[in-house]
C-alpha cells in the first residue's frame, strides 16, 4: 500500500542538503565571532584571542561552552513563553534564507544529479524579503517579553530601523530585477555567468549594490547601525534580561544574518558561484561545482570581512541621522536609480 506518493529519495537528498547547509552556516557563524575579534585586534593594534589552542583557534568553542554553563535566568515579571520564543525566532529567521541561495551548480554522486540549492523557487528574492521582514519579530517579542523599559525601547528602535531600511532595499532590488527579468536566484546567477561581456550585475547596477549593502548592514543590526544594542544609551539593548544560551542565540543570529546577507549579495551582484576567468563548462561537472562553492565562499568571506572592517572603523549613528539616511537619503536615491534603469532599458532594448 502506498500511503503517500512521495519521492523519498528526493526528500532524503534535500534533508541531507539542509543539514549540511545549516551546520555549515553555524560553523561559519561560530568562526565569524573569532574572526571579528581578530580583525578588531588587528585594527586596534592588539593581539586578540590567543590563549585557547594555537592562535586562539578554539576560542569560539570556549565561548560557546561558557554560555551553555551559565545560569539560566527567566525574570519573574516576564512573559515566559514569549521570552523563550524570542531567541528561537531570531535563530529560525536567520537560518531560513539559506534555503533559496544556490550554493553551487550540480554535483553528480553515484549517477544522480544533486542540485546544490535547497529550493529553486521562482520567487527566490521575494522569499528572502519575506524572511527578512519576519526577522523583526525575534527582536520585538524578546524585547517586549522581558518586561524591561530599556529592552522595549531597544526593540522598538530595532523594528523601526529594519522596516525603514527594508523599503530602500526593496526599491534598490527592483532596478536589478528589471534587468534580470527573473526572481529566481539560480536564474540570476546563470545570467551573470552567461553574460555577453562576462560582467557581473554589480557593474551594471553599482548604485543598487551600494544601497543594498548599506541596507543589509542596517538589517543585520551591525555597527554603525547597531542602535538596538547601543549599550551607552540602553544599558545593553533588547537582550538585556537574557542570560545563558538564549543570549548566545541572539548574538549568534547576528553572525548568521551577516553570513546569509553576504551570500545574498554575492549571489545577486557578484556572480554567485561563478569563478572569474574560469570557463566552468570546460571542467567536469563535479570539479566545476566544487570550484563554484570555493568561489562563492571566497566572496562571502570577503563581504564578512568588509562588515567587520566597517564596524571597527565607523562610530555609531545617532537615531535621527539613521532615520534621515534611510528615508531622505537612500529611498530617493533608490527610486531615482529605478527610474533611470527603466528609462535605460526602454531606450536601448526597443
Amino acid at each position: 500500500m502506498i500511503l503517500l506518493a512521495l519521492d523519498w529519495a528526493f526528500i532524503l537528498q534535500k534533508l541531507i542538503l539542509i543539514a549540511v547547509v545549516v551546520s555549515a552556516s553555524l560553523i561559519i557563524a561560530m568562526y565569524s565571532t573569532y574572526a571579528e575579534r581578530k580583525v578588531a585586534a588587528v585594527m586596534q593594534d592588539r593581539r586578540g584571542p590567543n590563549r585557547a589552542g594555537p592562535f586562539g583557534i578554539l576560542q569560539p568553542l570556549a565561548d560557546g561552552m561558557k554560555l551553555f554553563f551559565k545560569e539560566e535566568i527567566i525574570p519573574n515579571s516576564s512573559n515566559k513563553f514569549l521570552f523563550i520564543l524570542g531567541p528561537c525566532l531570531a535563530m529560525l529567521t536567520a537560518m531560513m534564507t539559506s534555503a533559496v541561495i544556490p550554493w553551487g551548480d550540480k554535483l553528480e554522486i553515484f549517477g544522480t544529479t544533486v542540485s546544490l540549492q535547497i529550493a529553486d523557487i521562482n520567487i527566490g528574492i521575494l522569499f528572502v524579503f519575506g524572511v527578512v521582514s519576519l526577522g523583526v519579530y525575534g527582536i520585538m517579542i524578546g524585547g517586549w517579553a522581558s518586561n524591561n523599559k530599556f529592552s522595549l525601547l531597544a526593540a522598538l528602535r530595532g523594528a523601526s530601523q529594519v522596516i525603514s531600511y527594508e523599503l530602500a532595499m526593496g526599491i534598490a532590488l527592483i532596478s536589478l530585477l528589471m534587468m534580470t527579468g527573473s526572481l529566481s536566484m539560480k536564474t540570476i546567477v546563470e545570467q551573470q555567468i552567461n553574460d555577453k561581456y562576462h560582467l557581473w550585475n554589480v557593474v551594471y547596477q553599482p548604485l543598487a549594490f551600494l544601497i543594498f549593502f548599506v541596507c543589509s548592514m542596517a538589517e543585520c543590526n551591525r555597527a554603525p547601525f547597531d542602535l538596538p544594542e547601543a549599550e551607552s544609551e540602553l544599558n545593553m539593548g533588547f537582550h538585556q534580561e537574557y542570560s545563558s544560551m538564549k543570549l548566545g542565540f541572539y548574538l549568534f543570529s547576528e553572525y548568521i544574518n551577516m553570513f546569509i546577507s553576504s551570500a545574498v549579495m554575492a549571489t545577486l551582484f557578484f556572480g554567485g558561484y561563478d569563478m572569474p576567468f574560469v570557463n566552468e563548462a570546460a571542467l567536469s561537472p563535479n570539479v566545476a561545482a566544487l570550484v563554484g562553492i570555493v568561489a562563492l565562499m571566497g566572496k562571502i568571506f570577503f563581504f564578512i570581512f568588509v562588515f567587520m572592517w566597517i564596524r571597527w572603523t565607523l562610530p555609531r549613528f545617532r537615531y535621527d541621522q539613521l532615520m534621515n539616511l534611510g528615508w531622505k537619503g537612500l529611498i530617493p536615491l533608490a527610486l531615482a536609480n529605478m527610474v533611470a534603469t527603466g528609462a535605460f532599458i526602454l531606450y536601448f532594448n526597443k
Partner: peptide
C-alpha cells in the same frame, strides 16, 4: 509571499 511580506512582515 506578498501576503507574508505585507501582512505578517
Amino acid at each position: 509571499i506578498v501576503n507574508i511580506i505585507v501582512y505578517a512582515g
